[in-house]
Design a protein around this nucleic acid. Structure first.
Length: 353
RNA sequence: UCCAGGAUUUCAUGGU
């Protein structure tokens, strides 16, 4: 069963909810395994990752009717996350009450989920209040994730002073920052154009033997790209490869977007060749950036070819893909084709409910 | 009894 659970999680990561459902049924029917609560949690999480919130909640309701599958703190934390992501804060707080009523105590993960949810919608004072509340009441012990979440949200909102303040408080509390903490700082400084500080964090990381990984490099590459520092971006990409850090779809997506924004078509092709020579799994966002690059270049044959290639690789276009194509065809007065893709997009959206 | 397996954080693409 552990293998099934691992595979369910894989499907969730790859956003393949239907495959997850099939696998789960296979496990029950063919291998006659009585699924554990963990298996159900894995299935729920696959649905959540694939934004099949409704399916997840149906399963959740079903589980509650079965005495052996009474949700535990894992399941409740996951469902609370689902509510928050759908903007259903009332329902989230109802679940929080419900879990306590049924004797399941929320833990650090549950509160981290809520703290992150406040941050995501910009309710930073509520975010802080919740943090001090759990600290004061001793409801649960904040962990490094809690701090990382708060640091991230101040960084994302451009409040660098607050971010640094929280980073210092973290250290003052005697907690060791981790890889994620530093990557969060690199990302925050980068997105706010503070390139010197960004670089100094990386220097610090190297000095104290934290892993400078693909997330670190991706943040820098993205930051330079956004800031129009194309040369610096290219150099960082080279440094990444020289350092033996494997680039990801994310890396190439940043590069292609920036090069195409600066109409550097030869560089787009260069990235594309490195992509072809790599063993990266097919990726929708990466194809989207390429399709958009060809649309910018008004190279519509290449755009269509990239779209066909994407479908041949078994990838389903998403709303972004369709939007790019529809805009492209509209700009060429090809209303029929634009309409056709509009219908396909609507069909996709309908299928997902 | 111990161990393992499920939940939360850092990163991209269109409309902008």
């Amino acid at each position: 069963e552990e293998i099934y659970v691992k595979m369910l999680l894989m499907f969730g990561k790859c956003k393949l909810p239907d495959e997850a459902t099939l696998l789960f049924e296979m496990m029950v029917v063919e291998d006659k395994i009585i699924p554990s609560l963990e298996a159900f949690t894995a299935l729920l999480s696959a649905y959540m990752n694939s934004k099949r919130t409704r399916t997840a909640f149906e399963l959740f309701a079903h589980m509650k009717e079965l005495p052996v599958y009474q949700p535990d703190v894992y399941v409740y934390s996951l469902m609370i996350k689902g509510c928050c992501e759908g903007g259903l804060f009332d329902q989230a707080s109802r679940l929080l009450v419900e879990m306590q009523d049924s004797g399941v105590e929320p833990n650090t993960v549950t509160y981290n989920t809520l703290i992150d949810a406040f941050g995501k919608v910009g309710m930073l004072s509520q975010m802080e209040e919740l943090f001090t509340h759990i600290l004061k009441t001793g409801t649960c012990k904040p962990d490094i994730w809690t701090w990382n979440i708060i640091i991230k949200h101040y960084g994302n909102r451009g409040n660098i002073e607050k971010m640094e303040e929280w980073f210092e408080m973290l250290q003052a509390a005697g907690i060791e920052p981790d890889q994620v903490t530093f990557n969060t700082l690199v990302n925050a400084y980068g997105r706010n154009g503070l390139f010197a500080k960004m670089k100094s964090v990386v220097v610090y990381m190297r000095k104290y033997l934290y892993n400078v990984d693909e997330v670190t490099f991706n943040s820098m590459i993205e930051a330079y790209g956004r800031g129009g520092m194309v040369e610096e971006m290219s150099r960082t990409f080279s440094a990444m490869k020289r350092g033996g850090v494997k680039f990801t779809a994310f890396t190439l997506c940043c590069l292609i977007s920036t090069y195409s924004k600066h109409r550097m078509w030869d560089m787009v092709e260069k990235v594309r060749r490195q992509w072809q020579n790599s063993d990266l799994a097919p990726d929708v966002a990466l194809y989207n950036s390429l399709i958009h690059a060809y649309r910018r270049a008004e190279n519509f044959e290449a755009m269509e070819a990239a779209f066909v290639e994407m479908e041949n690789k078994g990838l389903l276009p998403d709303e972004i893909t369709y939007t790019i194509l529809i805009e492209a065809y509209k700009s060429q007065q090809l209303e029929d084709k634009a309409d056709q893709f509009l219908r396909e997009m609507k069909a996709l959206q309908a299928h997902r409910r």
